[in-house]
Write a protein that binds this DNA or RNA. Structure first.
Lengths: 115, 115
DNA sequence: CGGGTATATACCTCCGTGAGTATATATCCA
DNA sequence: TGGATATATACTCACGGAGGTATATACCCG
């Protein structure tokens, strides 16, 4: 019951997902491409599969893993209000930076601003 | 130098970011809203600030924290190729959006708001 | 100045997790 | 059938991170 966010916090798992973007791969493929031990790859794939990020099909002794969209879509949806936020504020930010660029810091003296 | 993904893997930190969407808040505000000890809140804010997710301004003895857009934009960018991927799987997309839809299905196709 | 408030830091503990080695399971082929 | 290949699981270890308590720091106001 880990959140999708926790799942993709792991760099190797993000790498796996990115690799699977182009085509499905076997555990051995990923092992070589990630330069990680086979059990580690298998365990990451287990986590990803339990969370619905990937699914596998069997071909002979191999298991071919491929992407599934749903969990990352949840992450994408969590970002929606933040996208609204930064599209609202980016203009103001640019204006602000622009002003800082032209006007030297003339305001009241700056004290310790290191919280 | 933790990745933005690791930062937002922590549920309390995501909660902080969501709260800051509506308005800036002091540590005490967040402490009450999260029901977390003050030092824990401060530590999460420290992590968020070091990673650029928030910034603070001083008002009397309080520190008011507000959102900064950049780090979440990086996350958003990482998702771009995956969005392309799942837009190829329109069936699953429709299913998912239908499930998310609060309004009972109107006749025929529905339209979903999208930024 | 001194007491009250607000926040940050130090220190400790506990738990989860990622990595590795060794082993089990499964499938193919000669 | 037996050996080779491919993947999964069991077990262990070490490290980091999140939480709490206690304390330091900073600012306000009477």
């Amino acid at each position: 019951m880990e959140s999708s966010f926790a799942i993709i916090a792991e760099p190797h798992r993000r790498a796996i997902l990115s690799l699977l973007l182009s085509s499905e791969r076997s555990v051995g493929d990923l092992e070589r491409e990630l330069r990680l031990s086979q059990p580690s790859v298998s365990k990451h794939l287990r986590v990803l599969r339990d969370a619905g990020f990937v699914e596998s099909r069997i071909e002979a002794q191999r298991r071919l893993y491929r992407l599934r969209p749903e969990p990352l879509m949840e992450v994408d949806e969590w970002l929606i209000p933040f996208r609204r936020f930064w599209s609202k504020h980016l203009d103001a930010l640019e204006q602000h930076l622009d002003k800082m660029d032209k006007v030297p810091p003339a305001k009241g003296r700056k004290k310790h601003e290191q919280p």
